[in-house]
Structures are given as C-alpha cells and as structure tokens.
Amino acid sequence: MASQPAWMNSLFIDTGSSSFTEFLGAHAPNLLPTRAQTLAAPVGEQIPHATTIVAATCEGGVVMAGDRRATSGNIISQRDIEKVFRTDDYSCIGIAGTASLGIEVALLYRVELEHYEKREGRSLSTEGKAHRLATMIRENLPMAMQGLAVVPLFAAYDPARDGGRIFSYDVGGGPYEQFGYHSIGSGSIFARGSLKKLYRENSSPQDAVLACLHALYDAADDDSATGGPDVTRRIWPVVAVINADGYRRLPDDEVAEFVESMLETRMTAPEGPTAPLR
C-alpha cells in the first residue's frame, strides 16, 4: 500500500464534495494545472497561442467554430490544432490564449462536469456549469499576469430554455452571458464585426454554421494569427453543433461542403455577403 499515491487512501473516506478539482486540490494538488509560480522570464511570446473562436445561437441550439492555427510570435506553430472541446453531452468550450494551458483547462473542466453528473445523478444547471468555469479561469489569474492567459468561450444547450446559450470570460473569470453570438481570440474583433451583420436570430443550424465560417474567414482575412480554411491540405475549421440531441462535431466531409459553398461566394465577392442597408 505504501507505494500507492496518497489520494488512493482518501478514496473511501472524506467523500464530501462533488467537485473534482476540489478533490484534486486536497489530495493530489500536483495534478492541477500549475499555478502561482513565478516564471524566471516571460515566455508568452515563445509558446503557442490559440486564436479565434466564434459561437452563434440557432434554432433550438448553438453552433461553435474555431480555426486551426496556433502561433508563437510570428511563427505558425501548428496548422491543425483543435481548440473546440466537448465538455459534456450538452456543452463545449473553445479556448483562446496559451494553447497548452487552455487544453489542460478544457480536459479538467470536462472531468469536472462529468464527475459532478456521475456522483449526483444529475447534470449541473447551465448557469452552474458557466460559473464553475469562471472559478477555474480565475485561479489561472497569476499565470495570466505573466503572459500565460487562457480565455474560454462556453456554449451550451440549456434544456430549461430549450435553446442555446453562450458565456464569455476574461482572465479574471466571469461569466458574462452573451446573447446571439460572440467571439474570442486575436481575430475576434473582425469575426464579431462579421457576425454582427450575418447573424440571424433563430436561423437554422446550417445557416448559423455558414455564418460562423464566414466570420472565421473574415478574421483570417485581417488577423495574421487566425488561419483560414486550408484548401490544399484539406484542413477545415472545427465546427460543433449542440441541440436537444446533444453535442455533435460535424465530420470533416460535412464541414468541407460548407466551406466550399462559402468559398464559392467569396470567389465572386471576396468581402463576403453584404447586409442590406435598408
């Protein structure tokens, strides 16, 4: 028994909290994403950063899409990184900022939600999920102050409202509920401007997907850290749709069709669709 990690002795006693992170913090703090350690030198520029994520609600659900680029300063460090993560059957998060920390937060957050659900026999409320993520992001604040910021975008289907909801965060936590659509990351300004004109309330999921892809294209158009669809390598954005049937990541073939129809529009109108003025 002596060779077992300490947390194994605590499995059967101290059964208090349904929070996985609290259990880790008490019994295996070494497994938590490292926090509050002062870095000898700022490394923010040198390690990969994830960029743009967009989300938009649609009829009966929500759509989230993320580009595939990660950058370290002026270098493209990865062309096919995935930044949208399923967190439970009815929610997902997209991450922007320090890629490595973001991925770890996403994995931990998924375990956190499922852990609660399995222990309690019910899912957290959508607000509860959003708030839990805020606490986890706030705990990363010391790292964010040193240039290792992680900012997520959270989207979920809320069965209580039979619709999609979007929550945004800053490095200090949150959550800030966003209505309709939102974007995060370096290209978010351009993506949001694009979505502002292309978003339609209660549109079909297909239209919402197309609007999100246009927004990512506009972000890639003006932001060097956001990657556009890579036609030669056939690397497409990650697109997830969440509705009453649960989380579904669109398969690459399906995304390719959307991207191709978007590119067709752009061939004749490089600036993309225009919104009617009157």
Binding site: F12, T15, F20, L24, L31
Partner: peptide, 17 residues
C-alpha cells in the same frame, strides 16, 4: 454508495492523469 463514489474518483483521476 461509498464504493461507487470512490470508483468514480479513481476512474476520473486516472483518466485525467
């Protein structure tokens, strides 16, 4: 029930590690 809860913790912590 306490066996169940411990099992969930065991599984989650190993899957995360």
């Amino acid at each position: 029930e306490s066996l169940r809860l411990a099992g969930i913790r065991y599984a989650d912590i190993n899957g995360y590690t």
